[in-house]
């Protein structure tokens, strides 16, 4: 039983870490977006406000996949061990 619980907890932590690999994508995407926005502001300083707000919206959209991964990781860390632990305890009974 201890071994089973250890495997479950360890795999939950590993899974959370692996899920957060998805953070690479939004990082690259947002970096690109901000770089292009800086270029645009450099070319057209008078459009600064509009470019900035559009960039923030784009960053928010690009962040979505990373946040899906984050929510999965949070579930794996805080919720899954308890649920799986209860499941295994029930099974052993």
């Amino acid at each position: 039983m201890e071994l089973a619980l250890a495997i479950v907890f360890g795999c939950c932590a590993l899974g959370a870490g692996i899920a957060m690999i998805a953070g690479i994508g939004p990082g690259i995407g947002e970096g690109n977006a901000v770089a292009k926005a800086c270029e645009a502001i450099g070319r057209q300083p008078e459009a600064r406000g509009e470019v900035t707000s559009t960039m923030i919206m784009g960053c928010a959209i690009a962040e979505t996949t990373g946040l899906y991964a984050l929510v999965i990781a949070i579930l794996l860390i805080f919720v899954a061990p308890g649920v799986m632990g209860n499941l295994i305890k029930d099974l052993v009974k």
Binding site: A60, E63, T64, L67, Y68, L70, V71, I74
Partner: peptide
């Protein structure tokens, strides 16, 4: 789903 995740994820991750 994405709207809820976005708001929740940002605030929650900051706290964590």
């Amino acid at each position: 789903v994405s709207m809820a995740f976005r708001h929740y994820g940002n605030v929650m991750s900051g706290a964590v």
